[in-house]
Design a protein around this nucleic acid. Structure first.
Length: 905
RNA sequence: GGGUGCUUAGCUCAGUUGGUUCAGAGUACUACCUUGACAGGGUAGGGGUCACCGGUUCGAGCCCGGUAGCACCCACCA
């Protein structure tokens, strides 16, 4: 099953890796090489494959794309999300299994094959069913499933050994079995109903496969002559004048005075002069058009219902390909739209056309072939849905199956509560052929095999020796995909097999809200009906990917970028970051290629951090570090806190927030702060434990990022230090469990370190800001005098602080000299003295401090007003009041400090 | 026609149980930086009456009602 998709062997890979570690790190991250090599490495190492074991499973079945499909942005988003969940679960100790596969997509594929045959000069109608199917299979083997290959480029950790297809032998059998089972339960029946007919695919469609579009039409007013009256007419309005030929009545409202005198009368259909009755029904909207409706029971669902009620004749004037039939009497064999134009002219010539006016209405189109649907009466197979829907509705409403975001529960409930029977037959060849056989009298026998059907026939007709003929129709594609979570684990082969028992119910389904009815709802129904169990615990709905202008990305608009090209240009990691980072659950994503720069730049940043750290490797000393213990503690706690938060967020599918957090953790906390704090001067060495700690921090960060950006993280992880064994890969490493909480007061010291770090950053930023505003160049050394109540803190971080702001000396005098720059950070007063002893212009300083003072007075005012409000003190929670009192105290001392500084200027 | 959701910085979007130390991110913008990881970068900065109008509350971006605009889903008005 595995195809050799990357040319580099494992042996070559090892050499490559060896060379890299010994060489200088390349200037930039080579995403092309890294992606190819690591994907192949993971695959060969067997990381993608899962077998049941003692660990807990984390299972996702991929929504199978059409076998005809190619990768587009929607897939990229959807599959990136799944890959993040899978990789994260793997690194959390779960036995992960992500099943890939494709859907046979009966209509889409058959259309594609028919088109291919036509190009080769073959007309489908000249082929037998078997001949056609062999062409279709040939096509599928050759071109089908390209999309699965493309998913490798994205980095998806799919269990390729489990790749499934909805027309696999066992899958096919499962579908047949389910059909027979439902038939025997009385839930499948055959009947003539008004269905949606696709004249291009020449098949029935379910209601869900019809898309309504606002369309500009013409509303034609046509007059019908009343019988027995010399010159009396009744005028109707229609947007489909060609259906006039199938009219079997004209209908008006019983209380419409305009037409009251016509009771019991008849009129004549124009052009063909068919005598039809004028009927009365309250269904009519008197306000619309002329208040008179032409009734064509064969070609409109409402008319059909009226026809049933008033026992009207049904005249089917259309052939299955959308041309007019013999029954039309005119224009026979001509296309419906050509006839629509022609008949208007003919009506006009003959004096029947009263007027035409432009009219905008909703018209149904085929989702697959995009042609206008014709309502048509025909014999189809149906599945009763009410009983199936009941448990499926409950499971979602009581959160046995969780929807994320939950807003889709309402949508689901509305549809399930108003569910209609499902038209499951399709007049196609590509698909599971309905297992029903007919005898010469037209009696039907449903069985899994022809032998079974024949046995039924013999039982019913003892001694008979006729032959049976199988139903020509196949089943709706969704009638097979609803079994997906069960059948990919071999439900049909054995409903009690170890795989199915272990992996089912699956943990998470990731899909688009567009197919909530097509697929999600029906999988839930099938799960309960056939397996007696939900198919998945949770459903994560991704948004719809749109272009910059907010339009849905689609092939027909041509606004979907070439994903493989993007991956090649920017790297899969960058593509993954850019689609994820702006895509919270259930919200649409406006995709802008500019967002890819952010991902690429981030890769570059990580790469450069690697280069920096690797550069220290040759400069390690055994000396004890006295400069940076605070930096080490702070980084450790910062990563701990982020790890905890990530676990929570990722569990709630807050992937975009999580990614932002890791992004900021690496770029801001690690690169901008930590590395600068511990970075040695050009001519000094790095204490060994600082180096070791730094590498270890880096590894922890790579772990947290790995689910989102697998390639660069694995690459950097291996370049960071030589791994003892080839199996020591980042992908299979476990993210350590944090066993304490930072926000619960349990870990006060940890929390203190974090807030001290934040304060230190605030001091550094304030001093740098002051330097810039006072044109003190960064290379000019300064002296700091600090007036503070916690001198110990400054002594602890003094080395870092001096380095970060290029200060030569820090003293704690408590007083200031004229010409110094005054700063107030929280309540600490910091005075900056230029090393040259030069006097700086304090005008800007003064203005700055005064602005701050003004703000603080305002702030203090609002806090004091609040505290002065008895009702606030009484009603608010004690901790809120306490926090307000602290704000008050802080503001007061800050005001005091600023005023003091101002006096000194 | 029915339903759901949205409206926060120029742009694309976060904002988790209502507390003015949360109005934030990324981009874009401004100034400075040819600093030994990184110009695909660094340091710092400006920028928003949280659509509009009321209400509940000591207190509203957050809760309730209404208005306007937008998006999507459902639907058999010719």
């Amino acid at each position: 099953m595995e195809k050799e998709s990357f040319p580099i062997s494992h042996f070559q890979f090892s050499i490559f890796n060896f060379q890299l570690t010994c060489m200088e790190i390349s200037k930039n991250f080579d995403h092309r090489a890294a992606a190819a090599q690591w994907y192949e490495h993971w695959n060969r190492a067997g990381y993608f494959h899962s077998e049941p074991d003692e660990r807990k499973p984390y299972t996702i079945v991929m929504p199978p794309p059409n076998v005809t499909g190619v990768l587009h942005m929607g897939h990229a988003l959807n599959n990136t999300v799944q890959d993040v969940l899978i990789r994260r679960a793997k690194m959390s100790g779960y036995n992960t299994c992500w099943v890939p596969g494709t859907d046979h997509a009966s209509i889409a594929t058959e259309a594609k094959v028919v088109g291919m045959l036509r190009e080769n000069g073959i007309d489908k109608n000249t082929l037998t069913r078997d001949e056609f199917l062999s062409h279709a299979w040939e096509w599928k083997e050759k071109y089908g499933g390209i999309i699965l290959q493309q998913l490798r480029k994205l980095g998806c950790a799919l269990d390729w050994q489990r790749t499934a297809f909805t027309m696999d032998k066992e899958y096919y059998a499962a579908v047949i079995r389910v059909f027979v089972d439902l038939y025997n339960k009385g839930l499948i029946y055959r009947g003539v109903k008004m269905i949606n007919w696709d004249p291009k695919a020449k098949t029935a469609l379910s209601d869900e496969e019809v898309v309504h579009k606002q369309t500009q039409s013409k509303l034609c007013y046509v007059r019908y002559r009343i019988e027995d009256e010399a010159d009396e007419w009744i005028t109707i309005a229609t947007v489909r004048p060609e259906t006039i030929l199938g009219d079997t009545a004209v209908c008006v409202h019983p209380e419409d005075p305009r037409y009251a005198h016509l009771r019991g009368k008849h009129c004549f259909v124009p052009l063909i002069n068919r005598r039809i009755p004028i009927i009365f029904d309250e269904y009519i909207d008197r306000e619309f058009g002329t208040g008179a409706l032409k009734v064509t029971p064969a070609h409109d669902i409402n008319d059909y219902n009226l026809g049933l009620k008033h026992r009207l004749a049904v005249i089917d004037t259309l052939n299955e390909d959308g041309t007019l039939s013999e029954a039309a009497g005119m224009y026979v064999g001509e296309d419906r739209f050509a006839v629509r134009k022609q008949i208007v002219k003919d009506l006009e010539t003959a004096g029947y056309l009263v007027k035409e006016e432009p009219y905008s209405n909703q018209v149904g189109f085929s989702e697959r072939t995009d042609v206008v649907i014709e309502p048509r009466l025909s014999m189809q197979w149906w599945c009763k849905m009410e009983d199936l829907a009941q448990p499926a509705l409950e499971a979602v409403m009581n959160d046995t199956i969780g929807f994320y975001p939950p807003k889709f529960k309402n949508l689901y409930r509305h549809w399930m509560a108003n569910i209609k029977d499902w038209c499951v037959s399709r007049q196609l060849w590509w698909g599971q052929r309905i297992p029903a056989w007919y005898d010469d009298e037209g009696n039907v026998y449903v069985a899994e095999t022809e032998e079974g059907a024949y046995q039924q026939y013999k039982e019913k007709n003892p001694g008979a020796s006729g032959s049976l003929r199988q139903e020509e129709d196949v089943l709706d594609t969704w009638f097979s995909s609803w079994l997906w979570p069960m059948q990919v684990f071999g439900w049909n082969e054995s409903p009690d097999n170890p795989d199915l028992n272990y992996y089912y119910p699956t943990q998470t389904l990731v899909t688009a809200p567009e197919i909530i009815f097509f697929w999600v709802a029906r999988m839930v129904m099938a799960g309960y009906e056939f397996k007696g169990e939900r198919p998945f615990d949770r459903v994560y709905f991704t948004g719809i990917v749109r272009d910059k202008q907010g339009r849905k990305m689609s092939k027909s608009l041509g606004n979907s970028p070439d994903l493989l090209q993007l991956i090649d240009d920017y790297g899969a990691d960058a593509v993954r970051l850019s689609v994820l980072i702006s895509s919270p659950a259930g919200n649409d994503v406006l995709f802008d290629e500019a967002a890819l720069d952010q991902g690429r730049n981030f890769c570059n940043k990580i790469w450069n951090a690697l280069k920096l750290v690797k550069g220290w490797e040759t400069r390690i000393s055994e000396t004890e570090d006295v400069q940076t213990p605070f930096a080490l503690e702070w980084m450790d706690e910062t990563i701990n806190a982020a790890t905890l938060r990530l676990k929570d967020w990722e569990g709630e599918f807050k992937l975009s927030e999580s990614l932002k957090l890791v992004y900021s953790l690496i770029w801001d906390d690690f690169c901008s702060w930590y590395l600068e704090w511990v970075k040695p001067t050009p001519d000094s060495a790095v204490p060994k434990h600082v180096y070791d700690q730094t590498v270890s921090f880096f590894e922890r960060l790579l772990q947290l990022l790995h689910p989102y950006m697998p390639f660069i993280t694995e690459e950097v992880y291996h370049l960071l230090r030589t791994r003892a064994t080839p199996e020591a890969d980042l992908m299979t490493s476990l993210i350590p469990e944090m066993d304490y909480r930072h926000d619960g007061g349990v870990a006060a010291t940890e929390a203190a370190i974090l807030s001290e770090g934040a304060f230190l950053q605030e001091v550094i930023t304030a001093i740098r800001d002051a330097r810039i505003k006072n044109q003190l160049k960064s290379k000019d050394e300064i002296f700091l005098r600090i007036d503070t109540s916690h001198q110990g803190f400054y002594e602890n971080v003094g080395a870092i602080l001096k380095r970060q702001v290029n200060a030569g000396e820090i003293t704690f005098t408590g007083t200031a000299q004229p010409g110094q720059i005054a700063l107030v950070v929280k309540t600490d007063k910091i005075y900056i003295e230029a090393s040259g002893g030069g006097v700086v212009d304090t005008t800007a300083q003064r203005a700055e401090l005064e602005k701050e003072l003004k703000y603080l007075h305002g702030f203090l005012g609002s806090v004091e007003k609040k505290l002065g409000n008895e009702r606030f003190v009484q009603n608010a929670k004690p901790e809120v009041v306490a926090s307000e009192r602290k704000k008050q105290a802080d503001a007061q001392s800050r005001i005091q400090a600023i005023e003091e500084s101002l006096r000194l200027l």
